[in-house]
C-alpha cells in the first residue's frame, strides 16, 4: 500500500469508523429533532456510501429512513484550466429540496472547495430550509469560510500529507490513513 517515499499511519480502523458514523447519526437526529424532512446527500465518491451508513443508523434510531441523494461536483469546480473531470457517479436528488433539511456528507473536509461546489449543485434542485455538513475526517487547512456541523474525527495534519479514506463498499475494507512524505523514519 505504501507509495515510495511515503509513510502511512492508520488513524481510524473499522471499529473507529463504525462508532464515528453512529455518533454522527445520533447528533443529526438530536439536532434536527428526528428524521422528518431530512435529505442526506453524499458527495461522490466516498461520501455516498458514508451517507448511506448514516441513513441506516438514523433508521435504527428513529424508525424512519431519511431520503438519500448524491452529488458529483465535476461541473461546479472552480479550478478553471485543469483538465475536465468526468463525473464518477450520478447527481440525483429523489425529492424536491425546497423545504428540506439537507445533510451533505463527505469523507474528508480539507480546503472546503468541494463543499462549496456541492452547495452550488444542491441549489439547482430547490431552496432547502437548511444545509448541514457531516464529514468523517476534518483535516484543517480551510481556504473558504466553511465548517462541518458533524465531525467523525478532527485530525491535525500537515498540508503536504494525504488523508486516505477507504470504505468497504468501494475498497473492500474500512480504514483511514495519513500518508506523509518521508522525512527519516517517522512510522514503522
Amino acid at each position: 500500500m505504501k507509495a515510495q517515499g511515503e509513510a502511512a499511519a492508520c488513524v481510524l480502523d473499522s471499529d473507529d469508523m463504525r462508532r464515528a458514523v453512529s455518533r454522527i447519526a445520533h447528533e443529526v437526529v438530536e439536532r434536527n429533532r428526528g428524521a422528518e424532512g431530512l435529505v442526506l446527500v453524499g458527495i461522490h465518491t466516498r461520501g455516498v456510501p458514508l451517507s448511506a451508513r448514516i441513513a441506516e443508523e438514523i433508521a435504527k434510531i428513529e424508525g424512519v429512513r431519511p431520503s438519500q441523494g448524491s452529488v458529483d461536483t465535476a461541473f461546479y469546480r472552480d479550478d478553471v484550466g485543469l483538465p475536465p473531470r468526468v463525473p464518477t457517479g450520478p447527481t440525483s436528488v429523489p425529492v424536491p429540496l425546497s423545504g428540506a433539511h439537507v445533510i451533505l456528507v463527505d469523507d474528508v473536509l480539507f480546503t472546503g472547495r468541494s463543499v462549496r461546489a456541492a452547495l452550488t449543485a444542491v441549489w439547482d434542485f430547490g431552496r432547502p430550509l437548511s444545509v448541514q455538513l457531516a464529514v468523517l475526517v476534518d483535516r484543517g487547512h480551510r481556504e473558504l469560510p466553511i465548517q462541518a456541523d458533524y465531525v467523525g474525527r478532527d485530525l491535525a495534519t500537515e498540508r503536504n500529507e494525504t488523508v486516505k479514506v477507504r470504505v468497504t463498499e468501494i475498497d473492500g475494507f474500512d480504514r483511514v490513513d495519513v500518508l506523509s512524505p518521508h522525512r527519516g523514519v517517522l512510522f514503522e
Binding site: 461541473f75 461546479y76 450520478p90 449543485a121 439547482d124 434542485f125 430547490g126
Partner: peptide
C-alpha cells in the same frame, strides 16, 4: 457517452444549467 448521460439528467432538472 458518460458525460451525455449526466447532461441528459442536468437538462431534466428544474434549473437545467451548470456553471462548467
Amino acid at each position: 457517452l458518460t458525460l451525455t448521460q449526466e447532461f441528459r439528467s442536468v437538462l431534466r432538472r428544474p434549473i437545467p444549467k451548470v456553471p462548467a
